[in-house]
């Protein structure tokens, strides 16, 4: 870990902020600070020029018109796109996930070009996906993910691209390529989970921070965290990665 502060940028919270995803910034910053790390938060509003030297970028969900604006904004700031694709770590939620893809098509068939950072495409479904989602995260040690989805989008990943998790309940991507939620690349974590996702899944928050610190973070014990997960995941699944439980079952 370098001596300098972790730089976290919230991208376009004034445009893509419908579902309280800004809470993810609060969670990342606090979890870093509570470990004695310095944090510098930057809010990048529409109309401004984004910094390209931050460590973590966050992009939230929003309505259709806002999403089109965001897509255009990314096309206007190609350097930022290169940063997200190659160097920094990005968390992209719902509309934010779609915007980073190749293109999005709305229910009238109109196609909008995305930022082209993620190898995925999104079309409009016929029925809104609303409700709790649970997935088994593909990142090592993260375990079960819980979130709340609310979207019309059906996202299809390009061949060979991994989702963030295998969907155990809920819709997730709902695309032609099977039961996954979100996307996981070398630099981007994308998901349809609101909640906010990092408040519900502290292991995912720490995994993102660790891409910056480069070393494991000491555990944190927040009093209500386990109950928040238990309500959605049931007993036993609260904090433990699913792999451990499956392993134990096989031995017996």
């Amino acid at each position: 870990m370098s001596e300098s502060a972790i730089r976290i940028a919230a991208l376009l919270p004034d445009v893509l902020g419908t579902y309280s995803d800004r809470g993810n910034v609060t969670v990342l910053s606090q979890r870093a600070r509570w470990r004695g790390l310095q944090v510098e938060e930057t809010v990048v509003l529409a109309g401004s020029t984004p910094p390209v030297d931050c460590d973590l970028y966050l992009l939230g969900g929003g309505e259709d018109a806002a999403q089109q604006y965001a897509a255009e904004w990314f096309r206007d700031h190609r350097q930022l796109g290169a940063t997200l694709a190659e160097r920094a770590t990005t968390l992209a939620i719902c509309a934010g996930l779609q915007v980073l893809g190749e293109w999005m098509q709305d229910s009238s068939g109109t196609r909008t070009a995305g930022a082209g950072i993620l190898p995925l495409t999104t079309t409009a479904g016929t029925k809104r996906a609303v409700g709790e989602v649970v997935s088994e995260c593909g990142m090592p040690g993260v375990g079960l993910l819980t979130g709340f989805e609310n979207h019309m989008g059906r996202t299809t990943l390009a061949a060979g691209v991994a989702p963030l998790g295998r969907t155990l309940s809920g819709v997730g991507n709902g695309g032609a390529d099977g039961g996954g939620d979100g996307v996981l690349t070398s630099t981007v974590v994308g998901t349809y989970m609101h909640g906010p996702v990092l408040a519900r899944n502290p292991a995912l928050a720490d995994a993102l921070l660790q891409t910056v610190t480069g070393e494991p973070l000491p555990p944190l014990d927040l009093p209500d965290q386990e109950a928040v997960r238990r309500i959605r995941l049931g007993d036993g699944a609260a904090a433990r990665p699913r792999r451990g439980r499956l392993g134990a079952a096989r031995r017996s």
Partner: peptide
């Protein structure tokens, strides 16, 4: 029924509380 969610939010806001 969502006391834990409120409590978690308050922890991140540095507000000490009972749940």
């Amino acid at each position: 029924e969502r006391a834990a969610d409120v409590g978690l939010r308050l922890s991140y806001a540095d507000v000490s509380h009972a749940t």
